[in-house]
Design a protein around this nucleic acid. Structure first.
Length: 556
RNA sequence: GCGGAUAUGGUGUAGUGGUAACAUAGGAGGUUUCCAACCUCUUGUCGCGGGUUCGACUCCCGCUAUCCGCACCA
């Protein structure tokens, strides 16, 4: 990072702290690593970003909003793969209280203990009894999952069950699939969104808002039918060439249409969400020139994903991944199906019912059962694979290697017509996952504008109207002759309007007050002057142009 | 987690073994007919804990936090 850049970053961070946008949390107690407060200004900003995000996706029409618990039972995150991916399994020596990683202790007893589940590790530990590396005792406590997810206990005392604070919001949406499917009249595609907190007990949180232990995230799970080709219209984005860093082609600039045509973006729905993500990010004030999409390389991609793109934003910390858009296939729903035995599927009807003519053989249970006993099941499979013209008796070699003679009395002709009108399948999921804190950081970074004004440094936060935390500042030019009263009336009126935030400020010169408003990005300032008292008009001054025009109070 | 640096009003900084300064910001008043002007008054600070000392913001130790490398992670 250049010195100029570092200095700017320090001034920006100082301003954010001074003006109550972002502050270290619990600072009077010495602070806590990886935890931040959104202050009196930042709290509103965060909420506006969240709301803009929700509206952006809900406007697609087939998206619903969910809110799932952050406290999540162990089994859920074990099924999703997080326990294995995000945890180290620890055990403690009861003699010397030294904590050790179970997989490290068991390295000489298993080729790859890292791959074992918690239960398998426990079994292997009980069986192999490795000595404690520091005191040589053999007395290990029960294995517990440690590290990247915050452990907790759900319930008290002996009835408490292990759980975690969720490391992402997605799992609750997957486990809610049956309710979503019913709500959407059993028709795909549909999506669910959730805005909320996620928790990761990072070893070393760094770089301010970039890596946090408690963070705001917003995720969309879009469920699609893999048997239906995804068709999306990208013409709305044709005017804009996007920077793509593709796995094979490297950095290229082209429209979304082209990227999909050339199969650089491998799935249309992924491309569609990339385009919508581009819209969202620019809407909240991210500079399109400092935005790019980077494709995960094959070996970097999570094993279940078929295509994955990150939206990266360039700011004070270089290029930072702020959004991940992944085609997750059927991985998640299948994982929860396997773990629970419940069905997480959708039904699709075939265009034409599939008529299957079955003309072959099957066993006659009453005869073949007693004749083949334990082998009867395997005989049935073998017989049903025989062509219809088979003559009996016949000698068959079963899967198991056993040889049997099947006589005609053991079998019967199986001739029927089966009609399949459709099938149950596991939907595929395309998941855009947004790191809200990282996006907010870059909104602030991109909006922070320092200009030399009359030889002095002057800072303006050029926030988009969608996310500006304060909509209006109301100033009396002087707080006398009734100007203060009129300004307070206008301020009160604005505050009454739904979703409008207004601030009243009468201290300091008018220029100082404009400067204060500009620093936190208030788009419009309203000033009451002497003329206002006569004709009920006020001046409205716009932040970015400094232009003023007179407006009647009733038109505000 | 390892190594290095740092920690002084809201913010940015100076400084000392004898309880602290400057700038800026904030509040009150005055002045001012629209972009950080000016005048008066005023609020507020040595990260936390322990040690050395008659006395510690200053020296030592530990902790916490911040920044930079490495590692981890996405």
């Amino acid at each position: 990072m250049s010195d100029a850049n570092t200095a700017r970053l320090e001034r920006l961070s100082g301003m954010l702290k001074r003006r109550g946008v972002l502050l270290p949390a619990f600072e009077i107690h010495g602070g806590a690593k990886g935890l931040y407060d959104f202050g009196p200004v930042g709290g509103r900003l965060r909420n506006r970003v969240n709301q803009t995000w929700l509206n952006h996706w809900l406007s697609l029409g087939n998206i619903v909003e969910l809110s799932c618990p952050t406290v999540t039972p162990y089994a859920v995150l074990e099924a999703s793969g997080h326990v294995g991916e995000f945890s180290d399994f620890m055990t403690m020596c009861a003699a010397c209280e030294e904590a050790s990683r179970a997989d490290t202790l068991l390295e000489s007893f298993h080729p790859n203990p890292d791959s074992l589940s918690k239960a398998d590790l426990q079994a292997l530990l009980d069986q192999s009894q490795p000595p404690c590396p520091s005191c040589n005792a053999v007395d290990w406590t029960k294995i517990t999952a440690q590290n990247l997810m915050f452990n907790t206990t759900i319930g008290a005392g002996r009835s408490g069950r292990p759980g975690f604070l969720r490391p992402e919001t997605a799992q609750g949406m997957f486990t809610s699939f049956p309710a979503l499917y019913r709500h959407n009249r059993e028709r795909l595609p549909f999506g669910a969104v959730q805005v909320g907190k996620g928790y990761r007990n990072e070893i070393s949180p760094r770089q301010g808002m970039i890596r946090l232990r408690e963070f705001n995230m917003a995720e969309l799970e879009y469920f699609i039918n893999p048997h239906e080709p995804a068709k999306h219209d990208f013409s709305a984005w044709d005017g804009h060439a996007i920077t793509l860093v593709a796995d094979e082609q490297g950095e290229v600039k082209m429209t979304f249409s082209e990227a999909v045509e050339k199969n650089i973006i491998r799935h249309e729905t992924v491309g569609y969400f990339m385009a919508k993500t581009f819209d969202f990010l620019t809407k909240v004030g991210i500079d399109a020139e400092r935005l790019r999409f980077r494709q995960h390389e094959a070996d970097e991609m999570a094993h279940y994903a078929t295509d994955c793109w990150d939206a990266e934003i360039h700011g004070s910390y270089g290029w930072v991944e702020c959004v991940g858009i992944a085609h997750r296939g059927c991985y998640d729903l299948e994982a929860h199906e396997n773990a629970t035995g419940k069905t997480l599927r959708a039904r699709r009807e075939f265009d034409e019912p599939q008529v299957v003519e079955i003309d072959g053989w099957t066993i006659d249970g009453a005869k073949a059962g007693p004749a083949f006993r334990a082998l009867a099941g395997a005989v049935k499979v073998a017989v049903e694979n025989l062509p219809s013209e088979t003559n009996f008796p016949i000698e068959l070699t079963l899967e198991s290697g056993d040889e049997v003679v099947v006589k005609s009395e053991h079998v019967k002709r199986d001739q029927r017509t089966e009609t399949l009108s459709g099938e149950w399948y596991i939907p595929h999921v395309v998941e855009p996952a947004f790191g809200i804190d990282r996006i907010i950081w870059h909104i602030l970074d991109h909006a922070y504008d320092e200009i030399g004004k009359d030889g002095e440094e002057y800072t303006t936060l050029r926030l988009s109207d969608h996310v500006a935390p304060v909509d209006y500042c109301v100033f009396p030019l002087f707080e006398k002759d009734g100007m203060g009263e009129l300004a307070k009336t206008i301020h009160a009126k604005l505050c009454m309007k739904p979703d409008v935030v207004s601030m009243y400020d009468s201290s300091g010169s008018i220029g100082r007050r404009y400067a204060r408003a500009d620093e936190i990005g208030v788009p419009r300032c309203i000033t009451v002057d002497h003329q206002s008292l006569e004709d009920q008009t006020v001046t409205v001054r716009s932040r970015d142009t400094g232009e003023q025009h007179r407006v009647h109070i009733d038109e505000l």
